[in-house]
Computed example of a mutant assay.
Amino acid sequence: MKQIALLLSFFLVTSCVFAQATPEGMFLNSKAKDFKGTDQNGNSVRLKDLLKKGPVVLVFYRGNWSIHCTRYLKQLQDSLDAFTAKKTTVVAVSPELPENITKTVEKTGATFPVLYDEELKISKAYDVNYEVPQNTITQFKRTNINLDEINGKNGFNLPVTATYIIDKESTVIYRFFQNDYKKRPTITELVSKLK
């Protein structure tokens, strides 16, 4: 009986050690982590500086290869006046290399900062990063999506579909965190959360 209990304990501990942590994202009313990145124009962008002007809508997207992501970034661009009227800055973050961010900007017309998440620092700080499972990598490759080429050193990592609104005090006042990459918050919903 003791051996069975020991064996069960061993399997439980080892499965916990080797299981990948599931991202949970930032929660409402938590303090947003400051970050710095380079946008599509080569400018250094820091959250702390943006918050001096007003709230920030922070959007994590997977890449220019994702029609759902590019469609959503285009919607944000098309509605940018609604955000600027509320003194709000929209910022998008992706693990894709800068040359691929250029493709995203070309597809979406984005004039708001689109940041390269070098070494996944931002997505890890916001707990939205996950390592893509091998079966999904294989499916992607069948459709000519090679994440290791698209993301460079960021490899086979993607962010969960997540959008946050961060107020001037660095508090997360809105959270959209969705494992289904096809879902996004509506522009109306985001604008309604801005004071």
Rank of each mutant, 00 (worst) to 15 (best):
N157M: 06
L120Q: 14
N157L: 03
D127F: 09
V114I: 09
Q139G: 06
I137R: 15
L158S: 12
L158P: 05
D117P: 12
T163F: 01
Y126N: 05
K103F: 04
E169H: 13
V114N: 01
V114D: 01
N146P: 06
G155Y: 04
V160E: 03
D117W: 10
K141C: 04
T138Q: 13
Y116N: 02
L115P: 00
P113E: 14
D167R: 06
K168D: 02
E106G: 05
S170M: 09
E119A: 15
I122G: 05
T136S: 14
K124S: 03
L115F: 05
Y116L: 05
T163I: 13
R142P: 03
F156T: 05
T88N: 05
N129F: 00
D117E: 12
S170G: 00
E119I: 07
Y164G: 09
K121C: 07
I145S: 02
P113Q: 13
S170I: 02
D167L: 00
E118I: 00
P159V: 12
K87G: 06
G152Q: 10
V91K: 04
F140E: 04
K141G: 02
V132R: 04
V160I: 15
V114G: 03
V114C: 02
L158Q: 09
N135Y: 11
E119D: 15
I137P: 09
V105Y: 01
K103T: 06
I166H: 00
E118H: 05
T163G: 12
N144M: 10
T136A: 15
G155D: 08
P113V: 11
I145N: 01
L97W: 04
A162R: 00
P159S: 13
N144H: 11
A162S: 15
K121N: 12
